[in-house]
Simulated scan of single mutants.
Amino acid sequence: MKRQKLGNTELYTPPIVFGGNVFGWTIDEKESFRMMDHLLDMGFDLIDSADVYSRWAKGNSGGESESIIGKYMKSRGNRHKLTITTKVGSSMQQGGDKDISKTHILNAVEDSLRRLQSDHIDLYFTHWDDNKTPVEESLGAYQKLIEQGKVRYIGASNLSPDRLQESLDGSKKEDLPKYQVFQPEYSLMQRNKFEGKIQKICQENDLGVTSYFSLASGFLSGKYQSIEDIKGSDREQFLKDYFDDRGKKILNALKDISDHHNISQAGIALRWIIQRPGITAPIASATKPEHLKSFEEAVNMELTKEEMENLNAASNH
């Protein structure tokens, strides 16, 4: 399996990153362990998490994903076999304020390390911007963590083009750690949050890019054909706006290509991202080991120029 370097780091990613947001949310601890065993067996050894995952599940308070990953690594004794990314900046309380102050980062990392039962985080992301903390303050906190060996590299997610550029300029000017990876929302359903200014900044600064919501919360898998299919489900809040003419056009284009290759629509949707300029690896989740077949499909095929153009045309705004 071909691996890609993440920015200017010593970290390498398989063609698809596994999204650990499902751990403790849509799959329990036992199934999460089973999923991670399968992932490692298949060679997918990079897992993406965040301190707030899976806060939104009933009865949860945040940190469940990290805790499950930590218990798994301890029980298997395989921390060295996994690359773990997690994030800081979101509030553990629903509707709480974002916070990337030095104080919050230095406190939050200790909680994440405790839950992960690890002495280090491979790649630590600014999850969301609070739009008030000076970029040099956040980067200074990360510098301290890197010097202490608690964090190897840093990345950013969901920053505006202006704040991302300001952060990159600040790291250079003040000799502070540089964001090496950017994590935007990106899929056939959502292209505007990456393409354009952010994409240009990432390419000009050699940033790795790992996109999230790569399957648009499962919409692109073709599993849901109408809004009635998601009524009352965990996915409703994410998918309710997708069942319009554009969404149907994208699903039809995916179906035509998936039928031609006799593989899943999810596999085609992931492959489209893999072949897009500026992308290092998409992030995708699964709730059953058999769903990982789409990962293998995406890795082992290539879309033709015509197929890419058809998907681009269907998904244009």
Rank of each mutant, 00 (worst) to 15 (best):
Lys231His: 13
Leu145Glu: 06
Gly149Ser: 10
Pro161Glu: 05
Asp256Leu: 12
Gly267Asp: 04
Ser160Cys: 08
Asp169Thr: 14
Phe243Asp: 08
Gln265Leu: 09
Gln165Val: 01
Ile268His: 02
Gly170Tyr: 11
Lys223Cys: 07
Cys202Trp: 00
Asp169Ile: 14
Thr210Arg: 02
Lys248Met: 10
Glu228Ala: 15
Leu270Arg: 03
Lys255Phe: 09
Glu136Ser: 13
Ser233Val: 02
Phe213Gln: 03
Gln180Tyr: 03
Ala253Tyr: 03
Asp169Glu: 14
Lys248Phe: 14
Ala141Met: 08
Gln180Met: 14
Arg271Asp: 07
Leu270Thr: 02
Gln225Phe: 03
Glu147Thr: 12
Ile227Gly: 12
Lys172Arg: 15
Gly140Asp: 06
Ser226Glu: 10
Leu220Met: 08
Ile230Val: 15
Lys255Glu: 15
Ile227Lys: 15
Asn192His: 13
Leu254His: 07
Gly196Arg: 01
Gly218Ala: 06
Gln199Gly: 00
Asn192Ala: 15
Arg246Lys: 15
Phe194Glu: 00
Phe213Ala: 15
Gly149Leu: 09
Lys255Ala: 14
Ala156Tyr: 00
Gly208Glu: 07
Met189Leu: 12
Ile230His: 11
Ser258Arg: 00
Asp234Asn: 13
Lys255His: 13
Ala156Glu: 04
Asp206Phe: 12
Thr210Asp: 02
Ala269Val: 02
Gly155Cys: 01
Arg191Ser: 09
Gly267Tyr: 00
Asn205Gly: 08
Tyr224Lys: 07
Leu207Asn: 12
Asn262Gly: 02
Ser264Leu: 03
Leu251Gly: 05
Lys240Trp: 12
Asp244Glu: 11
Gly247Asp: 04
Glu166Trp: 04
Ser258Leu: 01
Leu254Pro: 05
Ser187Pro: 02
Ser157Met: 01
Arg163Glu: 14
Ser187Cys: 07
Asp169Lys: 11
Asp244Ser: 08
Gln165Ile: 03
Asp229Leu: 11
Ala253Met: 05
Gly149Arg: 07
Gln265Thr: 14
Phe182Ser: 10
Asn205Tyr: 12
Ser233Gln: 11
Val181Gln: 06
Leu145Phe: 06
Leu159Ala: 02
Asp256His: 08
Pro184Val: 05
Lys255Pro: 05
Lys150Asp: 06
Lys249Gln: 14
Gln183Asp: 08
Ser233His: 08
Tyr224Pro: 04
Asp256Met: 11
Pro177Glu: 08
Leu215Gly: 06
Asp256Arg: 13
Pro177Ala: 07
Phe219Pro: 01
Arg191Gly: 07
Lys150Gly: 04
Asp245Ile: 11
Gln143Lys: 15
Val181Phe: 02
Ile227His: 07
Trp272Tyr: 15
Asn192Arg: 12
Ala269Phe: 00
Glu236Val: 07
Asp244Arg: 10
Ser171Lys: 09
Tyr224Leu: 05
Ser258Gln: 04
